[in-house]
């Protein structure tokens, strides 16, 4: 089932105004330049002015053409995003060798894989290969977490 995000370009236009406000407020505290020096605020301010002009232009034309963004499987995409966030958060405390197989099995399940043997082979094989390449071929330490090898 597809999900449509309506008025995406209008949202983008409004966001550009928000970014511009932030840049102007934040850059007000930047130090003033000496003579003939390019001030720290000048370049970002020119950029956000251009950003707002383009953002509003895109909003206006987007409204006319009624463009939407379509995501076919939003549930699976969001679940994978959460999976990634878990992976990123847990990789250091729990370690690469524990979090990676969990993430692989979780993601494969979301993507419709149900055969347990395939899941085990893929997760163990991938984890082992990547660990071997980084640890022994490249001598790059991966987070050991609670298993120190």
């Amino acid at each position: 089932m597809s999900t449509k995000i309506k008025h995406i370009n209008l949202i983008v236009g409004l966001l550009s105004v928000g970014v511009a406000l932030y840049v102007f407020i934040e850059s007000a505290s930047f130090p003033l330049p000496h003579q003939s020096q390019l001030g720290a605020a000048v370049f970002p301010r020119i950029l956000v002015i251009l950003l707002v002009v383009l953002g509003l232009w895109i909003s206006a034309t987007g409204m006319k053409r009624k463009e939407d963004a379509t995501i076919h499987h939003i549930k699976e995409v969001v679940l994978c995003l959460f999976g990634l966030i878990f992976y990123g958060a847990a990789i250091k405390p729990l370690g690469f060798l524990i979090t990676t197989p969990i993430f692989i099995i979780f993601t494969l399940y979301i993507l419709g894989v149900r055969r347990i043997t395939s899941m085990i082979i893929i997760s163990v094989g991938t984890t082992g290969t990547i660990f071997f390449i980084f640890r022994f071929l490249l001598s790059v330490p991966l987070p050991p977490g609670i298993i120190a090898l």
Partner: peptide, 11 residues
Amino acid sequence: ITVLIFILAIV
């Protein structure tokens, strides 16, 4: 392959 890309990217 999708799962593999995720892993390689994060690691």
